[in-house]
Write a protein that binds this DNA or RNA. Structure first.
Lengths: 131, 131
DNA sequence: CTGTATCCTTCTTGATACTG
DNA sequence: CAGTATCAAGAAGGATACAG
């Protein structure tokens, strides 16, 4: 009865994505964004080079991949390892925190993939009910 | 050796978010999008009315909440229950599939919230290294 | 209360070209 | 190979007004 908010099971956590100004919401967006989620998912299988990532994350442009990797590196989820060779070789891999986040993300991804038949059926029904 | 792609642990799944044209990528975006993730997270705690949701998902506009709810309903993740009273009362709740997805989503959210101290420290270090 | 419709601004994204 | 810079198009989002 000390708290006016009864929503959370863990009301003592200092960060709350449901609050507009909380930095955790920003990080969640980096993680779940269109390219962030796929990039983390791809890297969970092992370290990859820039163009390997580009091929794995089908449809991403150089610009967006670069931007996404910078954001994830800044948040300490991805580590960038550049070797001063010629031609240059740069490997990207998950940090320990990145691995934890990516593991949860992959569970979500696999859950969605595994339920797509239901989702597609629901869409068909929804669209039919409107026509 | 029947498959040229060695990335997935479950190569037989018919849906793959890493493929550009796969409908699962679209659904994943509805689920992990800026407002979709928070809406599903909020509804995991129980059914909510439109304006209750609006207050819980801090910062969302009427328009975006409406749009988000329609997309989630179409994908069969959210059920809309309208009561023909006056004033109108509409409750939104997760479907069984929606609950499964939201559960994974909340694990991800809690993971991110729980690691924010590391994330913020990484950001500070990253930014300092650039100044 | 529960939305829809419209306008208008901002942010995101993709294409292209270029550098080390 | 591994990016960065620039620009134009489009999507996303917010504010406001209005309807059932």
């Amino acid at each position: 009865m000390s708290d006016t908010q009864e929503h959370r099971e863990e009301p003592d956590l200092p960060y709350d994505v449901f609050a507009k100004a909380c930095p955790s919401r920003c990080t969640l967006e980096n993680v779940t964004g269109r390219w962030g989620a796929l990039t983390l998912g791809a890297l969970h299988e092992g370290s990859l080079r820039f163009n390997e990532l580009r091929r794995r994350v089908d449809g991403v442009s150089e610009k967006m991949l670069s931007q996404t990797l910078h954001a994830l590196e800044r948040d300490g989820l991805v580590h960038r390892e550049a070797q001063p060779t010629n031609p240059p070789r740069v490997d990207y891999e998950l940090t320990p925190v990145g691995r934890e986040v990516a593991a949860r993300l992959l569970e979500l991804i696999h859950c969605v993939e595994g339920r797509m038949d239901d989702v597609l059926a629901a869409r068909t029904a929804y669209d039919a009910h409107r026509a």
